[in-house]
């Protein structure tokens, strides 16, 4: 799915670019109920929404949801999804038709890259926070590379390893890349 198609489908479901899978599902169910049944929101101007118009709206909603669902499933089925998930900025085009290969050799897992991977996977920071039992502030700090609020290296390595697993990235590579940058900052202090 191209980013434009993605945006179009999300627009139909009245969602922003960062919608999570559960938000997509909720929006779909809500809109289907709104335009498919009776509700106090639509009833007062029911004559403005003819059966034909409603069917058209409902069809668009169904199509958008089906397409988003399919894209989500394909993403999950990919063995190592970071090829598709890696940021376009580092040269890996997010084409899902391409076989998911290893990430480009020069891809460095900095905080912003980890963030971009997470967002492309449609995972909310809150979900990771709950799963790893880590404060959202700390996870955000890791993504924003606010080293001063991060814990000692030994703990940071554990967090990075767990985070990499959540994002289905190779833990060793993530830890090496991130810690190298962390040490560089520390040596300059």
């Amino acid at each position: 799915m191209t980013p434009e198609e993605m945006k179009r489908h999300l627009d139909v479901l009245e969602l922003g670019a960062r919608a999570t899978p559960s938000e997509i599902k909720n929006a779909y169910l809500r809109l289907r109920k709104l335009y498919g049944g009776t509700s106090i929101v639509l009833d007062p101007i029911a004559e403005e929404f003819s059966d034909k118009k409603r069917s058209k709206i409902l069809q668009e909603i169904e199509d958008a949801y089906a397409a988003l669902l399919k894209a989500g499933r394909e993403r999950e089925a990919a063995p190592m999804p970071y090829a598709a998930a890696a940021p376009a900025a580092v040269g890996a085009a997010p084409k899902e038709a391409e076989p998911a290969g290893p990430p480009p050799a020069d891809l460095v897992f900095s905080g912003p890259v980890l963030r971009e991977v997470r967002e492309r996977l449609g995972i909310d920071l809150l979900e990771i926070s709950k799963l790893l039992k880590l404060r959202g502030e700390l996870l955000r700090g890791m993504e924003e590379e606010r080293y001063e609020i991060l814990p000692e290296e030994i703990y940071l390595k554990v967090h990075l390893k767990n985070l990499a697993a959540c994002l289905r990235l190779k833990p060793a590579k993530v830890v090496d890349d991130y810690i190298a940058r962390y040490r560089e900052w520390k040596s300059k202090r």
């Binding site: 009245e14 809500r30 809109l31 709104l34 509700s39 106090i40 929101v41 639509l42 101007i45 403005e48 929404f49 709206i57």
Partner: peptide
């Protein structure tokens, strides 16, 4: 609360 979201949708289409 979610009525607001639905009203937004209907008003935009209307």
């Amino acid at each position: 609360i979610l009525l607001g979201t639905s009203i937004k949708s209907v008003l935009t289409k209307y």
